[in-house]
Design a binder for these strands. Structure first.
Lengths: 251, 251
DNA sequence: GAGTGGTCTAGACCACGCG
DNA sequence: GCGTGGTCTAGACCACTCA
């Protein structure tokens, strides 16, 4: 493995071996060479393939595991992370009941209110790295915990990557929506940014959440990214926080 | 370095060497052997002291650095993290202006409204691992960005660890409050949990934030911990989110 | 027992900061 | 030029999984 050197620039773009290996493994993940839930080759195999020592491969995998892109399991192998079959379903959902542990309420019920094609507004285009007017899929749904509406969400997706998405599929898929995105469209969300605000719902939103229009609700704007920081989803949610709260840990 | 073995339990409490080393370094941090901002001994020195190889010390330090307890600086050494002199001031503050980068507004202005001793309520006691009625310090303050009130905060601290805290000191200290806690009281906050809700301010809160009582604001309850998961601060904040938002990243 | 990841070591060399 | 952390290697052994 040679160094990515001899650039014409002054900045040598010098990169340690293990970061180059990390990039190569990342390429395999992006290209779909290894799919979510599958095992990647053993450290020894990768070391032989890339002509480096096992320790160097290990350091690359360590970082990818720290980023939640890979999961190591001693004695078994290293696996591509997935939103399915993960002990914690809803990996990106931070809403927790005030009483009781994590999700003592069981899985959420979903009501799909809408799912149709539309054209991206200027702001959607900006956030999703599209052009204004590009086709996007728009879905609207309500999540209920313990028979009570808790979340109203609008989801926008680049139509090109999500051909064939339907309300029926969203309603019938058992498990997290992000797991369905992996299974049906090969799109794995690896990271997301959220902006939170306290707002009042409008009349329509209030009705769907079964609250008064003067009940404060938590507005959550999320942009989710797949490999290589490519934005693939815009989500605007309203969370009821009268019986739940948004939990966060700072370190 | 021997293994922490021969327990009477079935569970061997077996721990890899590097984790034991990590624990020993943590002890040094807790005990104040190395203070925030100072350098700890070099990897070679620590390896000699603990009778292990440099690689084992390195792995222990790697984890402590990943936890933000230590900062590595190539060519210089490894330093104890601090809330002061950190490029990002306000490490635990997630409020960001809607326009402009991080804190284009410059440092916040602080108004200290109150700072006095009181007795812990049952809930404070529970969150701070005290007993109901134990002495706590209570401070109330307003933070202003760009001359506009943005945050109203109540802070409660175990009085025993914060003897001598005064409104004057809080107002005059240049830099983050958490840095003052380190400097004046030797208390370093390493982690915090937050619970967020959308609420309405009461009349007093609304007046202090210069908003109407029917303006939704973001309620942020924070419990901050020092080494060893010891709770040392309860903070209840109200954030205005009309010109700012709470930013979070999920991975 | 074979194969996987996990730990530990020892040694070589590189990149950076500073006197 | 020296000391620091950063990278890379090679080899040994341990712990876990599964056939």
């Amino acid at each position: 493995m040679s160094n990515a050197s001899s650039s014409t620039l002054d900045t040598p773009a010098f990169s340690p071996l293990y970061l180059q290996i990390k990039g190569l493994i990342l390429q395999g993940l992006q290209s779909g060479e290894w799919k979510p839930g599958e095992a990647i080759p053993s450290e020894m195999d990768l070391a032989a393939r890339f002509r480096v020592s096992q320790g160097t491969v290990r350091k690359a995998i360590d970082e990818l595991a720290a980023d939640n892109l890979l999961m190591r399991r001693q004695g078994k192998g290293t696996f591509v992370s997935t939103h399915a079959e993960q002990q914690v379903q809803y990996r990106f959902l931070r809403l927790r009941p005030d009483q009781g542990d994590e999700h003592s309420e069981g899985p959420a019920r979903r009501l799909i209110l809408e799912c149709k094609r539309m054209r991206a507004t200027a702001e959607m285009a900006r956030l999703l790295a599209l052009r204004t007017g590009d086709a996007v899929m728009h879905a609207r749904r309500v999540l209920l915990f313990a028979q009570t509406p808790a979340i109203l969400e609008d989801i926008w997706l680049p139509a090109q990557a999500f051909k064939g998405l339907s309300a029926e599929r969203m309603a019938s898929y058992p498990g997290p929506t992000y797991a369905m995105f992996e299974e049906d469209f090969g799109v794995r969300m690896v990271r997301a940014d959220e902006k939170l605000r306290a707002v009042h719902p409008n009349a329509e939103q209030a009705a769907l959440l079964e609250v008064d229009v003067d009940t404060p609700v938590l507005s959550v704007e999320r942009v989710a990214y797949t490999y290589n920081d490519l934005a693939m989803e815009l989500r605007r949610g309203l969370y009821r926080t009268d019986t739940h709260h948004y939990r966060n840990t700072l370190a």
